[in-house]
Amino acid sequence: MKNITVTVLIDALIDITLLAFLAITAIAIIHMRNLFVIIMLFGIFSLHSAGLFVVMDAADVAFTEAAVGAGISTVLMLATLALTKNHEEKKPPHHARLPLLVVLITGGALVYGTYDIPSFGDPMSPAQQHVKPHYIERSIEETGVANIVTAVLASYRGYDTLGEVTVIFTAGIGVMLLIGGRLLRRKKQEDD
């Protein structure tokens, strides 16, 4: 029993540390004006959140965030930076009061909303009651997969994953239509 309490405390400590890192990174992103620095900080932000996912027992999400969020997103942003050749953000002309007000009101409303959410890690919260026991108890005999996340992703909610593929396909077509013709156009201009 004593061991469990120590583990919970260590978990909470790592959790708070990572959350503090995330907050510092977010503030740094707001303040920085060099776009390269912003993109690198964003990569750090994603990596820290991947660490936080591990602490919160979501190993599969952590893998995906580290590979896709921190990896591919950062590379895409760097590629855009290389294509637009714009490395410095313009200084904002005036101090933004209205956005700050909007953000404070929205944040206040959201914090007020959290008072109705059950405590962090509460095993009796409504989110833990509905379909979760079914997945935990039956998934191995119904699908034969030990990893419940995989079982839900590919079997119980397989259509969701199909929808996800559709989204990626649509986005891919969109990107190709927007900038795919770029190289062809440039070649044509050179030929003319």
Binding site: V8, D57, A58, F120, G121, P123, N147, I148, V149
Partner: peptide
């Protein structure tokens, strides 16, 4: 869930 683990049976 506190004291829980990753959902792999």
């Amino acid at each position: 869930v506190s004291e829980g683990t990753t959902p792999i049976i």
